[in-house]
Design a protein around this nucleic acid. Structure first.
Lengths: 212, 212
DNA sequence: CTTTTATGAATGAAGG
DNA sequence: CCTTCATTCATAAAAG
């Protein structure tokens, strides 16, 4: 994995760790490993892989057992991120940046200025300026402009579509505009596979829970 | 278990107080996740559990199935069958390739092996192998490696924006980029943290026979 | 508290 | 390779 190249911090960090860390620390000047977002991302993915595979297998198993085959509708939205939102508080680390009103105003102004070219150098400058009004990184700025532009563009398209074409016929550019109900045929609410399989393992369970 | 959380259907996260995050954010502090060795161990165990469950499920499945594996195998890449003919106009369901978890894992493993040179021949091999786990083309593989590397690299150089405990700074300039704001980018000395969360774990495996 | 919306971030693909 | 764009995912914020 690529966290081999990531940083390692050694310190007492009061952020979030459960009792376990507490114990270790009080046990006598402990080194605490710190995971970066990327490290966690990788880990999360790896776990997600297994989770998904298990999910699929269980699903498959059920289908066979009950002579169901079908399921085309629900299979479509397979995605592998059961971990983060699920058990993930302690593991979850993703916090997303939220621009302060001040930052937003500045960004908006720059965007309007028409210099629609957020060059690399420019990003640095902007970031620097904005950091006076709150925590921010170059990536944040970069993403913001990307998103801003993309969404602005998209709105243009939609508006144009509404004006020129009253019909819902030859819509080629950006197909599904989710101005309506985004709830189509989704929400395959995966059930707990372990329970269905009657699987239970005290040792493992406790191990998993101690992460929480 | 609670990995049953899926996409789109988002719910409130009762565990991570957003206020805290916001405070930290505004305060200019960095988000760090602390992990003790023990926690790491727990995580490893969890992964091992998944691995074992998968193995057992596969075995179970094999012993029961005759050749009904299409549903599960194609899970990751089945698109929009039910929708296409609905409105008469072109509904492009999904047009871009999405790696199945299994494919992702394989790719990730290859990537981490360090043989950072995905030669033409190699691409073919990989594609061939991956196609056993879902629809894929050589272009997909090629792009994946390109993106993976590029993004990994970028993350490297941005990794330490707000590092509280880095004491050793080895200034690493990007070849085609100059740094004008000393406080913006900081390079640090990455340390190897965890080799591999290899999922082989006999002890856990031994405790998991109850699936049958 | 639950559901919906707005938007930051991740990522496959294309261009140069 | 590196940058840019388009699309999608996940979540903070807003609405109910």
């Amino acid at each position: 994995m690529e966290w081999e190249k990531q940083q390692q911090q050694q310190q007492q960090q009061p952020v979030g760790p459960p009792q376990t860390a507490e114990e270790l620390n009080s046990g006598g000047g402990m080194f605490v490993k710190v995971m970066t977002d990327e490290q966690m991302e990788v880990l999360r993915k790896q776990i997600a892989v297994y989770a998904t595979i298990c999910e699929q297998l269980v699903d498959l198993h059920k289908s066979m057992a009950t002579q169901h085959d079908l399921a085309g509708a629900r299979l479509g939205n397979l995605y592998c991120d059961p971990l983060v939102t699920a058990a993930g508080h302690k593991i979850t680390g993703r916090q997303r940046w939220t621009p302060t009103p001040m930052q937003l105003q500045i960004l908006e102004r720059i965007f309007e200025q028409g210099n629609g070219t957020p060059s690399k150098q420019k990003i640095k400058e902007i970031t620097s300026e904005l950091s006076q009004h709150g925590q921010i990184s170059e990536t944040n700025v970069y993403n913001w402009f990307q998103n801003r532009r993309a969404r602005s563009k998209r709105k243009q398209q939609v508006a144009a579509t509404n004006n020129t074409e009253s019909e819902v016929e030859t819509e080629v550019e950006s197909p599904n505009e989710k101005k309506t109900k985004p709830e189509d045929l989704q929400s395959h609410m995966p059930t707990s596979m372990a329970e269905d399989l009657g699987y239970q393992n005290p040792e493992v369970s406790s191990g998993m829970h101690s992460i929480d």
